[in-house]
Design a protein around this nucleic acid. Sequence first.
DNA 1: GCCAACTATTACGTTTACGTAAATGTAGTG
DNA 2: CACTACATTTACGTAAACGTAATAGTTGGC
Lengths: 169, 169
Amino acid sequence: MQEGTRARLAKKPAMTLFATAAMGAAANTHSLSDGASNEAASYRIGDLAKHFGVSLRTLRFYEDKGLVSPRREGMTRFYDDADKARLELILLGRRVGFTLRDVKQMLDLYDPVGQNARQFRLALEKSEKQMTRLHKQRESINSAIDELSGLIANLRQRLDVSAPAKKTG
Amino acid sequence: MQEGTRARLAKKPAMTLFATAAMGAAANTHSLSDGASNEAASYRIGDLAKHFGVSLRTLRFYEDKGLVSPRREGMTRFYDDADKARLELILLGRRVGFTLRDVKQMLDLYDPVGQNARQFRLALEKSEKQMTRLHKQRESINSAIDELSGLIANLRQRLDVSAPAKKTG
DNA sequence: GCCAACTATTACGTTTACGTAAATGTAGTG
DNA sequence: CACTACATTTACGTAAACGTAATAGTTGGC
């Protein structure tokens, strides 16, 4: 019972947030068929894993956490474009430091009908909090860098090591 | 067997590194006696916890990890100035992002006899690595901040929320 | 009909630095 | 003696996001 509760999601959100979040992220309609097609895109787990540069484990993990729920054919997962969009969002969330739990809260607010103002508001709220957190972290890192560089200087002096001498040829 | 192996340290290093690391850190000889005394300083766990602003748990944890080893009188721990100095170092290490394992490696190299060049060299080496790590982290955070601020702007626009309006009259 | 490639599930392991009980001992004070 | 403040130990819990087996079923091509 380590990997939580296998969850069933609502139905296949087209991701209102996605358009918001996409923001230039390559939204390739990289289907299985050759050129321009209007058949429903369908990806297998390996396809998306490669596409997003994540492991199969990761995708299954996200599903287990209720972040995506690809349809099944037999046992095999099949992701459509909506799933792909969700994943894009999830990964964006991770990049900016949201926890999966946060991401889930936001995604869960998605309502296929309506303009999803609540979802947006929550996203904005969380984003602003996350922003201040990031700023604090940066400050903390800056302090660390300062203190550490002082220490390094001191150590070098004591060891009489003038500089790293990366290439004094 | 969760908290590792209760370790016995060498003997009571006077912390060669400490002089290096102290770097302006208030080195109050904040003993139990009033003014200037030359009696061996002795602190109880609560004293140092308060002094350093950490929990008792933290100090015991550090001991359990072999980072300090105060003497005992009966069951009770008594820390002297050397222990205090070690703690100062440990906490400095933590501030700049070293793991306790790193800190221990460095402290373990302390040799009461000799100029401890090896200790210094290891410290320098680790410090430089840590420095690059910190720079990378900062870069990562900067990217996150950038991406997040883009997202925020977008969300605000969609919600038609011009600004946080921290105090608009 | 077989092999390779891909997929599935279950479930323990990892990392770091403590938090948080729970039960008990000890020292000093009135 | 009782009370209070402080100390001790053991040991499970936490957070986050997967990694890594181990075992096994499925599919497509030649």
